[in-house]
Design a protein around this nucleic acid. Structure first.
Length: 303
DNA sequence: ACCCAGGATGTAA
DNA sequence: TTACATCATGGG
């Protein structure tokens, strides 16, 4: 028997700084949602399409039919209002964050060009595995890999007549062998994913443990997981553990540093990270980084 | 055919 | 500490 569907709407007009669902979920931060038309990360908006995920056993779908700034619709098997607000950080004072962004031409252009984009607050384990998979991959294929893992190893949930797959638990994912994951086209990331899932399943370490540490110590702590270096650690801190100051130094940001902030290149990751973090405003430097990343990656920057 | 994509690891200097 | 080869896969 199907579970009753609960639905409601969130008034975006009441949110400081507005909200754009498409930009938020298709800007390379989260790979834990799927789009009902199967066309995620193809650089095409689809306002009528639902974005679906499962968090702590609760399937959810959200959409924004009127586009950026329009009201947000959600459906679930329970009251998901608090969960949606948490996952999409709807309580962030985005207007204040954007106003406090560094007075820098590139950063200002990035904020202005992607109005309503918010950071996400995703579950740590799924984020950890997502960004282990992200090594030397385009965003579309990262999303494909993560979706495959959910379909192959995660629990299936029914919502409004559709099937939604949860990202696998550490225990579920740890049942996969390296060969299994290579068959799913994870390439050289297969042993990283397998061993990290095993570490978490065995209780050797959990990504959540980093929450209690100071930022740089937290980043160092996460590198204990196999396949996690400084960059992936920064992504996990920023997108799932509440470290808004984290600035992942990926290829796009590194090229931006070379071109626009050459004095911030201090050689080592740690030193360069400190310099660019300061340049991007400190406390919300990760917010600025995410706008820059999306701005540069989508080619929105005018040469 | 060549280059690149939200890099990390093992080894050698 | 830093430098370098190596690692898979698919799209341009």
């Amino acid at each position: 028997m199907a579970t009753a569907t609960v639905s409601d709407t969130i008034a975006v007009e009441a949110l400081s700084g507005g909200f754009d669902l498409y930009l938020t979920l298709e800007s390379g931060q989260s790979y834990l949602w799927t789009r009902s038309d199967g066309e995620m990360y193809t650089d095409r908006r689809a306002p009528e399409a639902w974005y679906r995920t499962v968090v702590d056993g609760v399937p959810i779908q959200v959409r924004q039919p009127d586009g950026s700034g329009g009201d947000l619709e959600w459906q679930s098997t329970a009251d998901a209002d608090p969960l949606v607000r948490e996952l999409l950080r709807l309580e962030d004072d985005l207007e204040a964050i954007a106003a406090d962004a560094p007075d820098d031409p590139l950063v200002q252009a990035a904020y202005a060009a992607h109005d309503g984009m918010r950071l996400v607050d995703d579950p740590p384990f799924g984020t950890l595995i997502s960004f282990i998979c992200s090594a030397q991959m385009r965003v579309g294929r990262i999303h494909g890999m993560v979706s495959t893992l959910a379909r192959e190893y995660g629990d299936a949930y029914a919502l409004a007549g559709e099937t939604v797959y949860a990202f696998p638990t550490p225990e579920q994912l740890a049942t996969a062998t390296e060969a299994d994951l290579r068959d799913l086209r994870l390439g050289y990331r297969a042993p990283y994913v397998q061993r990290t899932a095993e570490m978490v399943a065995d209780g050797e370490a959990r990504p959540e443990d980093a929450r209690e540490l100071e930022y740089e110590a937290a980043r160092e702590h996460l590198t204990r997981f196999v396949g996690v270096g400084d960059k992936v650690a920064d992504c996990v801190l920023l997108f799932s553990l509440g470290f808004d100051e984290a600035v992942p130094l990926d290829t796009w940001i590194r090229s931006a540093i070379a071109e626009y902030y050459p004095d911030c290149d201090q050689g080592s990751y740690a030193e360069t990270s400190r310099a660019i973090r300061e340049r991007l405003g400190g406390r919300y430097a990760g917010y600025a980084q995410t706008y820059l990343f999306h701005h540069l990656r989508t080619g929105a920057v005018d040469a």
